[in-house]
């Protein structure tokens, strides 16, 4: 128990093989006492529709990248759209770029959309500099340097007027060596400091089995993190260090644990996946925002997906979020 909890100190991001086995066994043990309802089980999310890797070579017609399954060659068409800080031609992609590629369903092996060097920083500003800010993303993640280029400064200032220590920031941009070049505001800045978020109102009734809100994306911290979903409300008694910040005006989410299964549905595309919880979305609860990708979602971030999974589910990385619904637990709630 002690070893298990210690191993889980930073959830699956730094868990060893033994802990991964232990987490995988949770669903089996749970099924022993609470047999699950029939339904799809979690499998590999990246089922050939999305590839993530590093570009080895590129030409106007073909892109070669190295991903988990080895070297892959994909065809580029004039309709292939590329995002590399802004909309660009396929020629903008260079060897060495980290890319997430969505493929066309037919014909196979043809790239539909490419995001090159996309990165995101979500957290609390801890230091301000003339060129940018240093951001704390959570207890187990190293601090992120964010550079704000002059051409994007005014656009960012409109949505993030207070780039001062203590305030929140959520920006999308180009990931370069050691820092993020912020280009797009992913949301609007809350008016309060991170530590001043208002307390949630007491819940009057049981939380519904499906909760609507906003799903965001993050850069995965490792292979295990790339297969799951970060969830904002892990049980404080048996969870990892990545506890969410205290306080939020958003409705409270029911407690789950690492390894719990969550069905995430993109309300804009209708695509849904069953994903295991891989860790805590430490900053999600203080950003009590809405997603307006297709209609206006209820307030609150309910899932934080790895970037490839986000794309698999039909999300656009440069938009930052999609309207989502999460369903949890095959065990009926409301028995206590």
């Amino acid at each position: 128990m002690v070893a298990q909890r210690d191993d889980l100190a930073c959830c699956v991001r730094c868990a060893g093989a033994a802990t991964a086995d232990r987490l995988a066994r949770r669903s089996l043990l749970k099924a022993g006492v609470h047999p699950p309802a029939a339904g799809p089980s979690p499998g590999s999310v990246l089922t050939g529709t999305v590839l993530a890797g590093t570009v080895l070579d590129t030409s106007p017609q073909v892109i070669t990248l190295y991903c988990g399954s080895g070297e892959t060659r994909l065809a580029l068409t004039p309709e292939t759209s590329v995002w590399k800080g802004r909309r660009a031609d396929p020629t903008a992609v260079e060897a060495g770029d980290s890319v997430v590629i969505r493929l066309l369903p037919r014909p196979r092996g043809v790239a539909d959309r490419i995001w090159a060097n996309a990165g995101r920083v979500t957290g609390v500003i801890v230091e301000r500099d003339p060129d940018g800010v240093l951001v704390d993303e959570g207890r187990t993640t190293s601090r992120q340097a964010v550079v704000i280029p002059g051409r994007a400064a005014s656009r960012l200032q409109v949505r993030f007027p207070r780039l001062e220590p203590g305030y929140l920031i959520d920006v999308i941009g180009l990931r370069t060596r050691g820092y993020l070049e912020a280009l797009i505001p992913a949301t609007s800045q809350p008016i309060y400091r991170a530590g001043e978020a208002p307390a949630p109102a007491p819940a009057r009734s049981h939380v519904p089995a499906s909760i609507a809100g906003s799903a965001t994306w993050h850069e995965p911290a490792g292979p295990a993190d790339a297969e799951g979903v970060r969830y904002p409300a892990l049980d404080p008694e048996s969870a990892c260090l990545e506890q969410p910040l205290n306080g939020s005006a958003c409705p409270r989410l029911p407690y789950l644990s690492v390894g719990s299964l969550l069905r995430v549905r993109n309300e804009c595309t209708g695509i849904s996946r069953v994903l295991p919880v891989s860790g805590c979305a430490a900053m999600a609860q203080v950003f009590c925002d809405r997603c307006v990708t297709c209609g206006t979602s209820p307030r609150g971030r309910i899932a934080d997906l790895p970037m490839a999974t986000f794309v698999v589910m039909g999300g656009e990385l440069d938009q930052g979020c999609f309207n989502a619904t999460v369903s949890m637990g095959q065990v009926a709630m409301g028995q206590a």
């Binding site: 128990m1 298990q4 232990r22 066994r25 949770r26 043990l29 749970k30 609470h34 049980d235 008694e237 048996s238 029911p254 407690y255 789950l256 644990s257 690492v258 390894g259 719990s260 949890m328 637990g329 065990v331 709630m333 409301g334 028995q335 206590a336």
Partner: peptide
């Protein structure tokens, strides 16, 4: 050897 929580359990 393990303890975790899901919803009401």
């Amino acid at each position: 050897v393990d303890m975790w929580r899901e919803l009401c359990w």
